[in-house]
């Protein structure tokens, strides 16, 4: 078990580095946000994790023609992922539009 984990660490070293750095970056980037923007920021972050759709596209694109279960589940995954991405960005934009309107007056 431990050997396997070490092997995993070895072969994924660069990915693990990205993870650690991204954690710090995420904290740093957000730490000074005013309270008014909490909700739009949450919504924007929500859209960004829709990046999971790329995994869904890969799964879908690699499914074999005859593998109905994978095709159906993959199709569903892409639909849901798209909903997350598109819906997320559009909702965030609508929220921020209100702020813009408010500013101009």
């Amino acid at each position: 078990m431990i050997e396997q984990m070490l092997a995993f660490f070895n072969s994924n070293y660069h990915l693990i580095t990205i993870v650690i750095l991204s954690i710090f970056l995420g904290i740093e980037v957000i730490s000074r946000v005013p309270a008014v923007l909490h909700t739009p920021l949450m919504s924007g972050a929500n859209a960004i994790h829709g990046v999971v759709i790329i995994g869904a596209i890969i799964v879908m694109g690699e499914a074999h023609e005859g593998d109905i279960l994978s095709l159906v589940l993959g199709f569903l995954a892409v639909v849901l992922g798209t909903l997350n991405v598109v819906g997320g960005f559009v909702v965030t934009d609508r929220m921020l539009e209100m702020f813009g309107k408010k500013k101009k007056k």
Binding site: V19, S22, I30, L41, M42, V51
Partner: peptide
């Protein structure tokens, strides 16, 4: 999938979301 953009996007939201 060894996919760097999924990794950065996901972890960024994970950590930023927690702080938020």
């Amino acid at each position: 999938y060894n996919n760097p953009v999924m990794l950065t996007g996901g972890i960024l939201v994970g950590s930023a979301g927690t702080i938020l």
